[in-house]
Amino acid sequence: PLFLAAGNGHHKVVKVLLEEGRQDPDMTDEHDRTPLSWAAGRGHTGVVKLLLARKDVNPDSKDDKNWTPLSWAAGNGHTKVVLKLLLADSKASVNLPDTEGRTPLSWAAAGGHSAVTEILLSDGQANADLADNKGHTPLLWAAREGHRAV
């Protein structure tokens, strides 16, 4: 129930499930995704905020492809989740590579998400020169996909 509620943005249901304490808020599904990963990837700000407020939720949890909640949010262009929640107080690490060696910045740049790219670069923590397993940098991904703004 927690996965479905978190992934579909049902803030009140997630709150009740967390208060009951019968479900592990950092549990993983068959692809090692957590409720935080699902909520972040779909841009559900209220649910992400609820989950990040807990000490038993890992903001850098990795799924079976080593995508983190930040990777999912950045790759899908969810500015509010990235800016206000996952990066606040340095909760999430910005340079964690996935199994392809790609970082959240790489996915944001390739997706043409210029606002997310700007956020990730603004604090100076994201390394714009990190190349993936094929040697592609975020700039190369943006150029390859034709995203001038990025």
Rank of each mutant, 00 (worst) to 15 (best):
L86R: 07
T68G: 11
K55E: 14
K91V: 07
G77R: 02
P69R: 02
A73Q: 14
T99E: 13
K65P: 00
L86G: 11
N76D: 10
L85I: 13
N76K: 15
A108V: 00
A74D: 12
L85Q: 03
P97D: 01
G77N: 12
T99H: 09
A108I: 08
S114Y: 13
L85H: 08
K65E: 13
L96Y: 05
A92E: 10
G111A: 02
K84W: 04
G111K: 06
K80A: 15
D60P: 13
P97W: 00
V82H: 09
K55I: 05
A108E: 08
W67H: 14
S71A: 11
T79M: 03
V57Q: 04
A88M: 03
A109Y: 09
S90P: 09
L87K: 01
N58K: 14
W72I: 09
R102M: 06
T99Y: 12
A108L: 05
N58L: 08
S93G: 13
S106V: 05
S106D: 01
V82S: 12
A74Q: 01
V57H: 08
P69I: 03
L70C: 06
P97A: 09
D63S: 02
P59S: 08
D64W: 14
H78M: 03
K65D: 09
G111S: 10
A53F: 02
S93R: 10
D98F: 02
S90Y: 11
G112Y: 09
N76A: 13
